[in-house]
Nucleic acid binder design. Structure first.
Lengths: 233, 233
DNA sequence: CCATGTGAATTAATTCACAGCT
DNA sequence: AGCTGTGAATTAATTCACATGG
């Protein structure tokens, strides 16, 4: 057995990405950490350990520490992480310490549901505008947001400082609308349309295809019929 | 058209997992392959190459071939994959060659939107029942499905052979309802509630947290502000 | 003692390179 | 020519092991 050497590194001021690159899988877990730690904050808990966090989310304690440590070192040996601090840190990393104005484009049943969705409040996202090409929908109000015609899109995006869009238009229109959003200066698109979008560099797309999600379930259920692994929440 | 592989096959019977294990990331991509290949089928295209597939989805051709090959070898050197055949194979792998009855549990705005969502038709999923604990909603019809009281859940699940559930209840009720679903014999849960569910082995959970998705966007947009990687559709 | 942070080892996933079929 | 399928090499992600602080 070899003798490890001491690395001996003094502590960086605050929140310095030590080494490893951001890593896309890590970021997804950061959201889950935040979600869980926020519930702890509501309950008045003041500290949490990587083991408790991992247990609640189905991860190992090492995984949790690795994820957190690559964005800086918060958390104290022997104690754990300070809940309030961790909430702040995670929000800052994810960029939800400020509120993002979001446009909902396509006011079908899904778009309307998102406009009315209560889960965004306090999470850093605010549906700030809605757009639809159907004249019959323009002027109507859903979740407190008045639907505007598509012709207003570029103007409203600039005026209301909207940087994110939720896309819930019919598949045939999706790429066209995405192009318009990009030209209007939108920086990210949450895409519910079952189509792979092409966007210029500098614009992010996160796809959410409900059929794809159900297919994952279908696969897992079929697979567990033969063999027996767990699941994947 | 549509001539299944006739004679000439010294291959394995059908869809034999050659070597590699199923791999969870692979399955997500299979859904994307299916989605794209279905659009090709509608357009009447008869073959597609791994390169074309990859190009359309932002993947390398090698990646596509690796993914497909680990479920058996369909596709002919020098030609590519037969579109009709590939659709059938992918559906069989994902388990959507038969129709799954799905229960929507929790008929808030999101649940209603999912009941009305048109995108499930022809994809192997059918909203077959809806449940809500609010007496005011019971008896109402959304997307052709009548809302039933929670007390009917176990009975309806058995009677209608429902094996998948979409969970869109308030966060406080989520784990309780999930427990009831599991006792009723449900095999998979598509979880829209921002809570990590605990379920017995043999039940699959696929989480879809809209806030988490937006946080991914937020992170990506913030990150591209400093440096300049692309996106991630 | 318990808990974090991290280099080293391990395992998973992707890409490379090429044999072989059309 | 073009294309698939796959071992080998590479790169990413996770887990292990342990030094160090509370």
């Amino acid at each position: 057995m070899s003798l490890a050497m001491s690395s001996k590194q003094s502590r960086q001021p605050t929140g310095s990405p030590r080494r490893t690159p951001p890593a896309s899988l890590t970021v997804k877990r950061l959201s889950l950490y935040l979600r869980y730690v926020e519930t702890l904050a509501e309950k008045g808990r003041s500290t949490v350990s990587s083991r408790q966090l991992g247990k609640a989310l189905g991860l190992t304690d090492t995984q949790v520490r690795k994820d957190l440590s690559c964005f800086g070192q918060f958390g104290r040996p022997g104690v754990g992480y300070h809940v309030g601090d961790l909430v702040g840190r995670l929000r800052a990393i994810l960029g939800t310490d400020k509120v993002w104005n979001v446009a909902v484009v396509g006011v079908g049943s899904l778009g309307r549901a998102l406009l009315r969705y209560k889960g965004f409040v306090g999470k850093g996202f605010r549906p700030a505008a809605a757009f639809d090409s159907a004249a019959g929908k323009v002027g109507k109000k859903f979740g407190g947001v008045v639907v505007q015609p598509m012709s207003e899109l570029a103007g409203a995006v600039k005026k209301s400082r909207i940087r994110l869009a939720v896309l819930t238009v019919p598949a045939k229109a999706a790429q066209d609308v995405a192009d318009r959003l990009c030209r209007a200066g939108i920086r990210g698109i949450l895409n519910f349309v079952p189509v792979t979008l092409t966007v210029p560099a500098g614009v992010a797309v996160v796809p959410v295809d409900l059929v794809v999600q159900l297919e994952q379930l279908s696969y897992l259920v079929n697979a567990s019929g033969k063999k027996g692994p767990g699941s994947g929440d």
